[in-house]
Amino acid sequence: MNMAIDLENMKSDHLVDARAESCPGPLLAAKKAMTKVPMDGILEVWSSDAGTKRDIPLWCKKIGHEYLGDIEGKGYFKVFVKRKR
């Protein structure tokens, strides 16, 4: 998690609620949703699947997006990604 970024107050450009999805559903949902995010915009993904917290940083590394970090919600977590391509 990037401590320099205030994720609690982060305003996202697009929110994906993938809490009902099992792995790799949230990852696919993130990929699909990113097309709706403007360049340098923020995608926020909600997931209750533990694998997502590890998959999304790897996805960012592979694709070239910037992984901003994650924060805990109630029974789920929120992941933030900045679109870079």
């Binding site: 790799p24 559903g25 990852l27 990929k31 998959d55 790897l58 996805w59 592979k62 694709i63």
Partner: peptide
């Protein structure tokens, strides 16, 4: 199917 889904998500 899961590996295929993940691979597609990762481009």
């Amino acid at each position: 199917a899961i590996l295929t889904n993940a691979a597609i998500a990762m481009d």
